[in-house]
Design a protein around this nucleic acid. Structure first.
Lengths: 233, 233
DNA sequence: CTGCCGATGTGACCTAAATCACGTCACGCA
DNA sequence: TGCGTGACGTGATTTAGGTCACATCGGCAG
């Protein structure tokens, strides 16, 4: 899980949060960061723990989830390359509000709590960066709340497809199994499969094993007052 | 809506966020704050606007809600005396993630965006306070996401009762109509009424006109793995 | 006292979506 | 070549909870 290979500042440069920092800064930060590897499904930290470190995704994808006592799991978001998560308990928050779990084989850069505390007192710039990250997260969670509260499962699947599509080639591709999509959305595999079959019949997507190709992403656009009573799904 | 009556620092002292500040600070802050009044139902700011001010509730209650395009409304939380909200667009957030609406007759203290910007650069203490507020909000929204995703409506009603009960007298009282409770939870009045009737039959609450008295708050405690298949509700 | 109105109670009904229970299909591998 | 295994497809059934349509009830202005 811990990989002693040091972190090159060229690698650090690939994280958006460090784009604008001067070389000397990235050098010193790279020196205190730790590289970690996780296998698919492995838990990175648990809801309720007190990990105050900052985590950056270098490779792979990390799933942020909440599991309630009755066993149901609700995915909050998916962090891919360059994204940052964690650090919530750093500012008087008692405990982690959610769980982080590796989705693929994952390589993370970790800024340990102690180092972060040090940097925080020395560097006002960092605090501002944190506020920015928090803002984004607030925005995202507010959106999740709206989506969970008032969208149908079908709309949530569409939204999820658009959100997590890789747009490398000319046709966007979602590299998730139905099972994992279901977990992210907070539903079950059958419902995802059924809805995707519908979409395939309509020619909007093509299902392959372990991934979904979006043939007509525009047809997945968010629900709108104009299309009141939907015939399909 | 705007009330020119100046804000006394004795009043400002009643806001938890200003408890620890030295007198001179509260004086100068009180000088730049604005008092505003709102009638029940009045919108304070809308989702999508760019209000970067900080709002403090001095009297009454403010409902934070999200309305999605299909017309459904999802309540996020209820801010009462002393609570702080707003200010999201201050740190690079494009727009307000939610709407604020007065529930009762409300008196607010507003710290306008310009003043806040000034204070922000001068006072590192304030930035730390903001981080704290953001942390709490993140925590809360993460909880909302879990609740929306995996609790039943009945559990959400129970939770809401416990969360918003006034504990002045020996018996906690919730001063909300079924209608308003429903809006907060993101359901409809009938469902709330039905569930409350059940609870009343079980002797857990007593329904009066416009308020609910909790006779046995412990019976409302959150859902738990141990009580797997619930008979009631 | 009467009429109005907002807050409640309650039954009948309907739909989304979870659950259960299978069957199929592709693919690696001994 | 057969077999195991993980991913996908699909019907039947069940259920929470939203929708509709009313009846009731308590307070209060005139």
């Amino acid at each position: 899980m811990i990989n002693t290979l040091p972190i090159k500042h060229s690698e650090l440069r690939e994280i958006p949060a460090f784009h604008d920092l001067p070389d000397e800064q990235t050098q010193s930060i790279a020196a205190v960061m730790v590289r970690r590897q996780y296998a698919p499904g492995q838990i990175i930290f648990m809801e309720g723990e007190q990990a105050g470190s900052l985590w950056f995704v270098f490779q792979g994808r990390v799933k942020i989830i909440k599991q309630s006592l009755n066993g149901r799991i609700q995915g909050l978001c998916l962090m891919n390359r360059g994204k940052c998560f964690g650090s919530c308990p750093l500012f008087d928050m008692k405990k982690n509000p959610a769980t982080a779990q590796a989705l693929d084989d994952v390589t993370l850069f970790v800024l340990p709590e102690e180092s972060l505390q040090q940097l925080k007192t020395r560097d006002a710039q960092l605090v501002k960066a944190l506020l920015h990250i928090y803002s984004q997260r607030l925005e995202h969670l507010a959106r999740v709340s709206e989506v969970l509260g008032s969208w149908t499962v079908s709309d949530r699947i569409n939204d999820c497809l658009l959100t997590y599509a890789k747009r490398d080639s000319d046709e966007p591709i979602v590299e998730l199994t139905h099972e994992k999509l279901a977990a992210l959305i907070g539903t079950v595999r059958e419902v995802v499969t059924r809805h995707l079959s519908l979409l395939e019949k309509e020619g909007v997507v093509r299902n392959e094993n372990g991934r979904i190709i979006l043939l007509n992403p525009n047809a997945l656009l968010p629900p709108c007052a104009c299309e009141d009573h939907k015939t399909s799904a």
